[in-house]
Design a protein around this nucleic acid. Structure first.
Lengths: 119, 119
DNA sequence: CCGGATCCTCTGCGATACTG
DNA sequence: CAGTATCGCAGAGGATCCGG
């Protein structure tokens, strides 16, 4: 395993705590977009520090984009999945399929009306 | 995002550092199997502590199995992917496909003769 | 020798409080 | 509202040691 290996680099970055749940929450939002406070509300156990750290990382990685709307008051910050980010959701989808097959299945997630991960 | 959500739980576990590279190294081995010392050699930057911690976790999760061969000397410990573990490789495959499309591509990994991730 | 366990250090995460 | 600042602790890195 070389450190330049594509899989290795991606795993290292995706593997950080809260990255996948965060991408999934954005996916669930309207236009695959949510505000900072909505993310904090929907991921009740994430701390503001980690949330802002992960958001910056994801912007840098090109998976999400930040848009500040300062015409309103108070100003809104919208984070939305880029095309790259949206396509990554299919990887998470694969993870869910695997998980439902092999791990102790969560009935809510199995339902077609799953509001937890909505995949 | 509920803590019982299948995706959340899987992400939390898969996301731990070295889990994905470790699964991939086992996949690359003969019969999707490798010894402790081979893993340490092929993941030069992993520390023995983390390696043994991750191996225990993966056994507990049912993704790998441990087999001690004490008929030889010195005794060998072989770790191999279970059926569940092998099927998870397709998720990693999806990650690689995504990565090659969207991230700065690694020429070695793009090659069909990729010896880094061999997917 | 092989497969770890142990000790120590240091980065990263969690919790809470505070600010532009 | 959208973040920083500060502190404490758990997990990761690095080196060394140990039992079979």
């Amino acid at each position: 395993m070389n450190k330049d290996c594509t899989v290795y680099k991606t795993a290292d970055f995706i593997g950080k705590k809260w990255t996948i749940p965060l991408l999934l929450e954005l996916y669930k939002g309207e236009d695959h977009s949510k505000r900072y406070s909505e993310l904090k509300r929907d991921l009740p156990k994430i701390t503001p520090k980690i949330l802002s750290t992960r958001l910056k990382e994801l912007v840098k990685e090109g998976m999400i984009s930040k848009k500040v709307n300062s015409t309103t008051f108070p100003p809104r910050c919208d984070y939305s999945l880029t095309k790259s980010g949206k396509e990554f959701i299919s990887v998470i989808q694969g993870m869910k399929t695997w998980s439902l097959k092999w791990k102790d299945p969560n009935k809510i997630c199995k339902s077609t009306k799953c509001f937890e991960c909505r995949l």
